[in-house]
Structures are given as structure tokens and as C-alpha cells.
Computed example of a mutant assay.
Amino acid sequence: MTTVAQVLQDKVSQTVYTIHPEATVLEAISLMADKGIGAIVVVHEGIVAGILSERDYTRKIALMQRKSFDTTVSEIMTAKVLTVTRSATVEDCLELMTDKHLRHLPVVENDQLLGLISIGDLVKAAMDDQHKLIEQLQQYISG
């Protein structure tokens, strides 16, 4: 089974963008737009304090008619962040993300942010595993 450690290693870009909880939502959304990402990890004093996604923005700024330039990230971020470790399996992460309706999971060990995986990263890894299994079965059948 493929682990999160392997998924992180295979990612094209391993950069994890972070922002401080007291930054404005406008700063966060601007950074996300500039980097082409759908979520940003909120870090305070080196520890994951939350996550801010496009979904948070849509539901908590646009629909509630708040202003991005005077609302802080901490006011709209998801504070109860589910995280995984490098030893978690792709299957476990996919199950967690499906059950909790998540698109991103921070990878944390010893309170240190090691990476961020998306549902797309996990689907790619699962597909790669299936292709490898099919090849092995074809070789077994062929003798």
C-alpha cells in the first residue's frame, strides 16, 4: 500500500503555502490565486492553527456579505483541522476525505507541518497502484 510519505515524495511541487491567522482574507485569497492553489494552511508560531479553502471563502465571505479586506483569516478558517502522518495509507486518507468531505489534508508529525496532500494527489496514487497491480497480474497470467 502506498503511504502519504510516498505521495509527498512523488508530488511535482512540494511547496506548502502558509499564512498567519491575523492576515486578511484578501491577502490569503490573493496568495491562493497567485499560486493557483485551492487551500492554504494557517500557521501560528510554527503550529497548524487552521486551513482556509476556497469553500470557506465562498461560504463565509461572499454569502455572508463580509469584506475580504477587513476580515482576518482566523475569523473564517476551519479551525478543527484533520491531519495525517507520513505513515497513513492512501486508502485511509481517501476514506477520511470522503467521509468528512475534505479536499486537502495537512501532513503533520510532532507538531511540524511536513506537507499538504489533495484529493487529486491521492487519486493519482491509487490509480498508479492499480496499474501496477494489473501489470503484475498480467505477467503472472502470461507465465
Rank of each mutant, 00 (worst) to 15 (best):
T2H: 03
V4K: 02
Q6W: 01
Q6H: 09
L8M: 12
D10H: 05
V12F: 13
Q14T: 15
V16P: 00
T18S: 15
I19Y: 08
I19M: 11
H20Y: 15
H20A: 11
E22A: 06
E22G: 10
T24N: 08
L26A: 09
A28M: 11
A28Q: 10
D34H: 02
K35H: 14
I37Y: 12
G38A: 13
A39Q: 13
I40V: 14
I40A: 13
V41R: 10
V42H: 15
V43T: 11
E45G: 01
E45S: 06
I47F: 11
A49Q: 11
A49G: 07
G50Q: 11
G50M: 09
I51S: 14
L52M: 12
S53W: 00
E54N: 07
E54V: 00
Y57I: 02
L63A: 15
M64R: 14
R66E: 10
S68D: 07
S68V: 06
F69M: 05
F69Q: 07
D70K: 02
V73I: 05
S74Y: 04
E75D: 08
I76D: 02
T78G: 10
K80L: 02
R86Y: 02
A88D: 12
T89G: 13
C93N: 02
E95M: 12
T98V: 06
T98M: 01
K100I: 04
H101A: 03
R103D: 05
H104A: 07
H104R: 10
P106Q: 03
V108L: 10
E109C: 07
E109P: 05
N110S: 14
G115M: 03
G115E: 00
S118C: 05
D121N: 11
L122K: 01
L122V: 05
A125L: 03
A126W: 10
D128A: 09
Q130L: 08
K132S: 06
L133C: 09
L133E: 15
I134P: 13
Q139G: 08
Q139H: 04
I141T: 14
S142Y: 09
G143H: 04
G143P: 15
